[in-house]
């Protein structure tokens, strides 16, 4: 019975959408969070500690609160209503990227700070430019970057508040759908269809484990370890 549910076309479509939406959210968040993390990790400037504390505190922001704020902003009469992002996959991705950005900033900036300061000098004495030396430090902190990406993706794919409020759990055959695993689970539980909810939960867990495993494998390969 569970296998039939898991392999059904509808469930697979929802699972793939979850990966796509949260994958885009993670890439978006990495794109703008890593430069922020680099600034915090590399430079000392006034207010830096407050900024770090802010991002650390934002890691625990309730998804429903962020979802509600974004809903009010993206609603047709909201300040960003003209963008037409409400009830779209991209809307969910952007919302999730904001949710997970603090995880990436905190993990990556801490990793950069933890890299031996001599690494920069080593790179410079081996002929690196300032930019190449900074990249070398980022590479040394790559465990932190990878960990942040995994943690961020897992947080995005497992959250419910934003996906529900921004996405709306829409599922119409052949339509612009926004149903993802978490919103579907919530719906099936409320309908009393627990078996389907369990099947979706198993898929969600499998995705989290597989992504983590693949990331670690790629990381090991890139480090050139045997």
């Amino acid at each position: 019975m569970l296998i039939d549910i898991i392999t059904s076309e509808e469930v697979l479509e929802i699972a793939l959408r979850s990966i796509k939406v949260s994958g885009i959210a993670t890439l978006l968040a990495l794109g703008y969070s890593i430069p922020v993390a680099m600034a915090i990790g590399f430079f000392r400037f006034p207010g830096r500690d407050y900024l770090k504390s802010f991002f650390n505190a934002m890691i625990g922001v309730p998804t429903v609160v962020l979802g509600l704020i974004l809903y009010l902003m993206l609603a047709p009469n909201g300040i960003l209503g003209r963008l037409g992002l409400l009830y779209t996959e991209m809307g969910i991705s952007i919302g999730q990227s904001l949710l997970i950005s603090p995880i990436i900033v905190s993990f990556v900036s801490n990793s950069i700070e933890a890299v031996e300061k001599e690494i920069r000098e080593l790179a410079l004495t081996l002929g690196a430019t300032d930019f190449q030396a900074s990249i070398a430090m980022i590479k040394e902190a790559s465990s932190g970057v990878l960990l942040s990406a995994i943690a961020a993706f897992n947080r995005a794919i497992a959250e419910l508040g934003i996906a529900l409020m921004i996405g709306g759990n829409i599922f119409v055959r052949g339509g612009q759908n926004t149903r993802v695993l978490t919103t579907a689970m919530q719906m099936y539980v409320s309908r009393g269809e627990i078996e389907i909810a369990i099947a979706l939960g198993l898929i969600l867990m499998a995705i989290v484990f597989i992504i983590s495993y693949l990331s670690n494998t790629v990381h090991t390969y890139l480090r050139g370890e045997t």
Binding site: E118, E121, A123, L126, G127, Q132, A136, K139, R223, G224
Partner: peptide, 19 residues
């Protein structure tokens, strides 16, 4: 104190050539 990139011996030595 030897400062070492957290990678293979080969990639450590290759670094200066790559840059």
């Amino acid at each position: 104190k030897p400062v070492i990139f957290n990678t293979s011996v080969y990639k450590n030595i290759e670094f200066g050539l790559k840059v």
